[in-house]
Amino acid sequence: MATFKDFRNNVKPNWCPGCGDFSVQAAIQRAAANVGLEPHQLAVISGIGCSGRISGYIYSYGFHGIHGRALPIAQGVKMANQDLTVIAAGGDGDGFAIGTAHTIHSMRRNIDITYIVMDNQIYGLTKGQTSPRSDVGFKTKSTPQGSIESPLSVMELALTAGATFVAQSFSTDLKDLTSLIEQAIQHKGFSFINVFSPCVTYNKVNTYDWFKENLTKLKDIEGYDPSDKKLAMQTLMEYNGLVTGLIYQNKEQKPYEELVPGFGEVPLAKAELKLSKEKFDELVAEFM
């Protein structure tokens, strides 16, 4: 049995000291070990950004793609081999600006992968521009007078887009985050976890302290029930999206792969490629 140490490699992250992404990395490594995975059974597909580097910092198969496209790559991987555990990961710019369409459609499609966003409400890698998650009035390099666009309510978005597993966390809550990732991996279908992962270099507003003051744990809300979508929506609106924990889970909905007619038990990656002569002749005859 692998332990979280087996998911470590010898690459030193080039994240700034204190960056929230370190804990996300640790949480993924722990969760992977806790659910009983071996490193070769995991594929981490990431986007471009500081956060996107994460696939290179975990000892497993890793694919660092292009900006905003971690999700379609990850879905392709899963369609080719259902035996793999696939985690897509990236930043808020990656998932809610350039890749928004993929985020929404992955939620609707419900392929069995886990998507972790390291949400720092800023563009880290390009050195501090506004993101679709930045609050109104937030001053950045690209919004010197303060942001005038509304931030995207991603939790609500996930609910309306049909996501079957919606969670939010805070990178310092290593235990909670690890447990959410485990649940997400075990959930059959698309799982979305938005993680507040502070950028200590370019976001001086949404800091660790700010989150500690403003976040509410769903566990602490009496009677909260993650199977109740209406309640989830109400709670999110009430708390302006600033809650952590499992917000919603639909255990009934089957994942995409199980609904595709005829989609094989044998992963495509292991299937016989050659068409039989009989099948070929049958296909040819249809054109006569």
């Binding site: 694919f63 392709g76 991987v77 495509l268 299937a271």
Partner: peptide
């Protein structure tokens, strides 16, 4: 990109 992902994974 989905086709890339699937090819990468061996299909």
């Amino acid at each position: 990109t989905m086709a890339i992902g699937a090819n990468y994974a061996g299909a």
